[in-house]
Each structure stands twice: as structure tokens, then as C-alpha cells.
Simulated scan of single mutants.
Amino acid sequence: MIGKQWRIRGRCFVLPRDLDRSDGIAEETKRWLTGKLMKDGGGGNGEGFDFTREYQAHFGNLSPVLRGSFRNPLPGAPKELGNGGLTPRSPIGDDELNQEVALSNFRVVVIEPTRVEFLDLEVPSKTIWVPIGGEAEKTENLEKFGKVEGDWRAVEVWP
């Protein structure tokens, strides 16, 4: 994959750890997630979806070393300040997935893409994908170009 780049533009949402709580912001976020991401064969309407379990699953899917990096001292802090009682470079095994310090620094991020680009410098070629009827398709006048692939328009452009 040398000389190849993927670029994604869109809105980014950092999910709170406690998304299963029942307040207005959490409920609004869950409605957005279930409406946008779980429609059209993507998992139903979200009824009965366990956000806490999913959050923990994302953390658990990381390697033990990467999980452990979330309990390292603050990046960029002078070493002379010490490690604040943290255990840098210490992996978190599968039996320690509830490690509070690491979980407090871990977040799940959802990106709602509005444009995806693939640049291949070896060929050279570049393809962009924009949602059908989306803002990018209109502002870039792409309605008449490329081909439709599901809900997306793929357009070959000059690199």
C-alpha cells in the first residue's frame, strides 16, 4: 500500500463512555446513531442495542499493548514530573478489560463521511465518493459525473 492514501471528510462525534444513561443529550445521540447507522440493513432500529457493551467491545478488540497505552502518562509531559503513579508500557490483558484509568482515557469516535477520497500515486489515479443528494455532490457539481454505487456517487478525477 505504498503510495496510496485514503482521505475521509465528514462530521466526527466523540461518544461518551456512559451513553446508556437516560438524559437528553445521551438520548439524542442514541437516536442519531440508530437513525443514521442502523438503518437499511445496518442493524435495525437500535432497539435493545447495548451501547456500554459495544463500547467495551471496541476497547477489548485492541491489542493488550494498545489498551495499556491508554493508562500511560500524558503524552508530551516532561518525564521529570514523574509518571503520576501510572504504569507506562504495561499491557492490559483480556482479564483486565475494566481497568478504570485506561477506560477513562479511551473514547469511541463515529465519523459520518461526507466525502471519501482514494489517491493512488503508483497508477496515478484518484477516485472520490460523495453521498447521493448530499451537500458535497451539489457544491462540487458532481450530479452528472461518475457512477452511482448504492447511496454514493463514485467519480474518477485527476490526481
Rank of each mutant, 00 (worst) to 15 (best):
E137C: 07
P64Q: 10
I2H: 12
M1Y: 07
T52C: 07
S125D: 09
P64C: 06
K4G: 04
T52I: 10
P75K: 07
V101N: 07
D50R: 13
S69M: 06
L19K: 05
L19F: 05
V101T: 15
K36P: 00
G43F: 08
G43S: 09
G35M: 05
N83I: 11
D94P: 11
P73T: 08
L142S: 04
E122N: 14
G68K: 07
E100T: 12
G35Q: 11
T52V: 12
A77F: 11
K144I: 06
E112F: 13
T127P: 01
A136N: 05
G134K: 04
I111Q: 04
V110H: 00
I132R: 09
G24C: 12
I111V: 15
D151M: 07
D23C: 14
G68R: 10
S22Y: 05
K138N: 13
K39N: 12
G41K: 06
P124N: 01
L142I: 07
G68N: 08
T29H: 01
T114K: 02
L86K: 13
L37A: 13
N45H: 05
E117I: 00
T127G: 01
M38F: 15
W129Q: 04
F70T: 08
L33P: 03
D40H: 15
K126M: 15
G85N: 08
R21S: 13
G3A: 03
D120M: 02
V148K: 15
D50I: 11
F106H: 03
S69I: 10
L33H: 06
E100C: 06
G134Y: 08
A136W: 06
R153F: 01
V123T: 11
L74I: 15
G84H: 06
F145C: 01
K39E: 10
M38Y: 02
L86A: 07
G3N: 06
E54Q: 13
R67M: 12
R7Y: 03
A77T: 10
W32Y: 14
Y55S: 09
P131M: 06
G85P: 01
K30M: 10
T52Y: 09
L103M: 06
G82R: 10
L62A: 07
G76V: 01
E112L: 03
E143G: 04
R53Y: 11
G41P: 02
